[in-house]
Computed example of a mutant assay.
Amino acid sequence: MLREAISTERAPQAIGPYEQAIKWGGLLFTSGQIALDPVTGTLIDGDISAQTRQVLENLKAVLEAGGSSLNHVIKATVYLTDLNSFAKMNEVYAEYLGNVKPARSTVGVASLPRGASVEIDLVAITL
């Protein structure tokens, strides 16, 4: 089976040597997304709720480009620079991830690229 690079202009371009996502077999693995505006490539202004919303919009675009959707996510990893923002992040996250929530890990980290407060990566099945 060959790996297929997935890319869309509806999500921020990679800020390093990696793809927005890789499709392999019936799975789609996204790279971590932070709250970058897809047009400007800059971190959006806003609190953890606004940043989480932008991250999930970016991931939604990548998933759709790869033939999947947020409803087909099976695993998520969330990285937070402040675990005190866990509840607010969860509120937005719950709006996006459908009725059957994926398995998830949440990790507290010292910092994220560009000063972001949250980063999320996903694994999804393809349609």
Results as ranks from 00 to 15, higher is better:
Leu2Ser: 15
Leu2Glu: 15
Arg3Thr: 13
Glu4Asn: 11
Ala5Thr: 11
Thr8Arg: 10
Glu9Arg: 15
Arg10Tyr: 05
Ala11Arg: 06
Pro12Gly: 05
Pro12His: 13
Pro12Glu: 05
Gln13Pro: 02
Gln13Glu: 09
Ala14Asn: 04
Ala14Lys: 05
Ile15His: 03
Ile15Gly: 05
Ile15Gln: 07
Gly16Met: 04
Pro17Arg: 12
Pro17Leu: 07
Glu19Ser: 14
Glu19Arg: 08
Glu19Ile: 11
Gln20Ala: 12
Gln20Phe: 03
Ile22Val: 15
Ile22Glu: 01
Trp24Met: 11
Gly26Thr: 12
Gly26His: 13
Ser31Phe: 03
Ser31Ala: 15
Ile34Cys: 01
Ala35Pro: 00
Leu36Asp: 00
Leu36Tyr: 09
Asp37Leu: 10
Pro38Asp: 10
Pro38Ser: 07
Val39Phe: 11
Thr40Lys: 04
Gly41Pro: 05
Gly41Thr: 10
Gly41Met: 13
Thr42Pro: 00
Leu43Asp: 07
Leu43Arg: 02
Ile44Gln: 05
Asp45Lys: 12
Gly46Lys: 04
Asp47Leu: 00
Ala50Thr: 14
Ala50Asp: 15
Thr52Glu: 02
Arg53Leu: 11
Gln54Thr: 12
Val55His: 03
Val55Thr: 05
Leu56Arg: 05
Glu57Pro: 00
Leu59Val: 09
Lys60Gly: 14
Lys60Phe: 00
Val62Pro: 04
Glu64Gly: 00
Ala65Tyr: 08
Gly66Ala: 12
Gly67His: 13
Ser68Ile: 11
Ser69Ile: 14
Asn71Ser: 14
His72Thr: 13
Val73Cys: 04
Lys75Leu: 10
Ala76Met: 15
Ala76Ser: 15
Thr77Phe: 02
Thr77Tyr: 01
Val78Asp: 02
Val78Ser: 08
Tyr79Glu: 02
Leu80Thr: 04
Leu80Arg: 01
Thr81Leu: 06
Thr81Tyr: 07
Asp82Trp: 00
Leu83Arg: 09
Leu83Tyr: 06
Ser85Trp: 08
Ala87Leu: 06
Lys88Ile: 02
Lys88Ser: 13
Lys88Glu: 15
Met89Thr: 01
Met89Glu: 10
Met89Gly: 01
Met89Trp: 08
Glu91Lys: 09
Glu91Val: 14
Glu91Met: 04
Val92Tyr: 07
Ala94Val: 08
Glu95Arg: 11
Glu95Cys: 02
Tyr96Met: 07
Leu97Trp: 04
Gly98Ser: 10
Gly98Pro: 12
Asn99Tyr: 10
Asn99Phe: 08
Asn99Pro: 09
Asn99Leu: 07
Asn99Trp: 06
Val100Asp: 10
Val100Ile: 08
Val100Leu: 12
Lys101Pro: 09
Lys101Tyr: 03
Pro102Glu: 07
Ala103Arg: 15
Ala103Leu: 09
Arg104Met: 09
Arg104Cys: 01
Ser105Gly: 08
Ser105Val: 07
Ser105Asn: 15
Ser105Lys: 14
Thr106Pro: 00
Val107Trp: 02
Gly108Phe: 05
Val109Trp: 00
Val109Thr: 04
Ala110Glu: 13
Ser111Asp: 14
Leu112Ile: 13
Pro113Lys: 10
Arg114Glu: 12
Arg114Tyr: 12
Arg114Leu: 15
Gly115Glu: 05
Ala116Thr: 01
Ser117Thr: 09
Val118Thr: 03
Glu119Trp: 00
Ile120Gly: 01
Ile120Ser: 03
Asp121Lys: 06
Asp121Glu: 14
Leu122Asn: 04
Val123Lys: 00
Ala124Asn: 03
Ala124Thr: 10
Ile125Trp: 04
Thr126Val: 15
